[in-house]
Design a protein around this nucleic acid. Structure first.
Lengths: 341, 341
DNA sequence: CTGTTAGCGCTTTCAT
DNA sequence: ATGAAAGCGCTAACAG
């Protein structure tokens, strides 16, 4: 391995000088810089990151933590997409990113501990928000730089987070359904433990209220992702005395399952029932019908979190922030006008 | 930060002893081990990974490189799934994993260079196989430990890789279609640059030949993922004088697009046309109809690569290997019997 | 069984 | 503008 010493020797300067050249220190003469750089190139010198990390006690690396149900969760295109968003900024700032790989909460907690105590990373991005979460609490207590994607359950003013305005998004998309003449609108959401679900549901509710429509408890269904989840939700729906004509589904992936089961049950979308959802993952344009959905700009969510986290790691004194990434409804064809009836 | 010295002082032993306790060195008396461990716990000691890495010049980290078209590619559930597979073993062996984040080939190449020269990682997993690939060549020349998922174009005997038997898989699934009475069978594949496509296509061809069926060039279509790709392929298909009754599609994600376009064109699957594909990603059971597809055990593909890579990094002398992960046809309902006609 | 010592490669005062 | 030297936290001979 070519070290700084080799370069120094080859150039006839001291190691410290070489180090300064690497840092592009202004008080090194252009001439020596030139010579040192030439030698580095010739010898094929590359800095050893561990030595550097050790000396400056910083790593230029950030850790990305997936939710503990990672096996299922990772199936949601949301995650690859947000990873890309994070990657785009870590890459441009020459940071590297380390992914959590644990499955159980316990495993992940241990990984986080190692990351923090072992100086693996300078900061952490949490890809979920959970009530009373051990990892969140740990990071918060230790005062370790981290940002959360989503809304924190506690200490929201002290925890930097980047989120959408899911309440408003839920309201707007439900409004749209109402504008199209629908009055019986049901909500199908993911886990009630997740703030996203709650926020979107609250928006749905508010839209109904504002329009003077009743909110029925049987019209609010909570379920899992994928096929099984879709089945369950659709069965519940079909068993209702009065079938809704509109459906607000809190995640495109759930919509997929719902769509599939609906078709199996002979209910056609959008002619029998209209459906809208959230996220605008790439799948939502391939489904039949293509989904009208809220684009939450997943990539941007990731990019913003990485950006603010890095800011935070370089200057630990900056105050906690909330960053809201704007959303936008994407109109496709999973809705039909109800006015005609 | 609590260091090894603090623990040493607190216990009244030498730092090296503490180090040995960490390594669980057998020649330390159980008694001192006990005391040292107690002190570590009390002081809240955690080893500094960078110092350790520097001292032993190894990192217990592996780099995972995505293909350069990562933006699109990452959308394929194949990637999250293989990441999970990799993660399951890195996690169990206490390794960490660093993801590439570049988009262009140039960017990724630079990342790889940094990983290798900067001692970021002990080994690298390449999640693609490309002809005349700069990164592959670099790694191969440098003799840096790496494994490839898929089949190398060159130096296959010198490059450890883990792959499926895509040829046989293609043959078997095509055979199945033939058994079901189909004679006009087309192939829709992804990029011809990819070995997977080529292998599966070769298997398709072999099955036709073995059955004494003709192989038409117009029956072999190459396309992109997702909607646009599906459209194009289906248009080509519909423009044929003789429409095939069977379709072998080289990737579930492509099937999704094809399915969607087929339905739009009023062609029904499986009654008008039967379709089979590859990968068995979770989507394939949500589509309508659910896909008969070859399960290539993506998770296992990832796990095996991580496993063999780690073996290779600890003992650089082990010979290059080829590991074939078995496949299995998953029967669902995108096929109908053609015999009746 | 344990302590001493010398690095690993880089950065960073402190001199000059 | 540059060099000398100490030190980041840990490991690994080498002694004993």
């Amino acid at each position: 391995m070519v070290t700084i010493k080799d370069v120094a020797k080859a150039t006839g300067v001291a190691p410290s000088t070489v180090s300064r050249v690497i840092a592009d220190n202004p008080r090194i003469s252009p001439d020596t810089k030139e010579r040192v750089r030439k030698a580095m190139k010739e010898l094929g010198y590359h800095p050893n990151i561990n030595a550097r990390n050790l000396a400056v006690s910083s790593t230029k690396a950030i850790g990305v933590i997936m939710p503990s149900s990672a096996d299922k969760a990772l199936q949601n295109p949301f995650f690859p997409e947000i990873l890309r968003g994070i990657g785009s900024v870590t890459h441009s700032m020459q940071y590297s990113m380390t992914l959590s790989s644990g499955v159980t909460e316990e495993e992940i907690f241990n990984e986080v501990e190692r990351m923090v105590y072992g100086s693996y990373v300078d900061g952490i991005i949490l890809l979920y928000s959970k009530l009373d979460d051990r990892i969140t609490n740990f990071l918060h207590e230790k005062n370790f730089p981290f940002v959360m994607v989503g809304k924190p359950y506690e200490n929201a003013t002290e925890i930097t987070h980047v989120d959408n305005d899911n309440y408003t998004a839920g309201k707007e998309i439900t409004d749209h359904l109402i504008q199209m003449g629908h009055q019986n609108i049901a909500f199908i959401g993911g886990s009630k433990e997740l703030f996203v679900t709650l926020d979107r549901e609250a928006g749905y509710e508010a839209a109904l209220c504002d329009a003077g429509l009743d909110v029925y408890d049987e019209y609010r269904i909570h379920t899992e992702f994928l096929k099984s989840g879709g089945r369950e939700a659709v069965e519940r729906l079909l068993s209702l005395k009065e079938m809704p004509t509109g459906l607000v589904v809190s995640d495109d992936l759930i919509s997929l399952g719902v769509l599939s089961m609906l078709e199996e049950s002979g209910v056609s979308v959008p002619s029998d029932i209209s459906l809208v959802s959230f996220n605008n993952v790439y799948l939502s344009e391939i489904t039949r019908p293509a989904l009208t959905t809220v684009d939450i700009q997943i990539h941007e969510l990731g990019a913003q979190s990485a950006k603010v986290l890095i800011e935070q790691t370089v200057d630990k004194s900056v105050a906690a922030k909330r960053i809201i990434v704007p959303h936008k409804i994407i109109y496709r064809n999973s809705i039909s006008e109800k006015g005609a009836l």
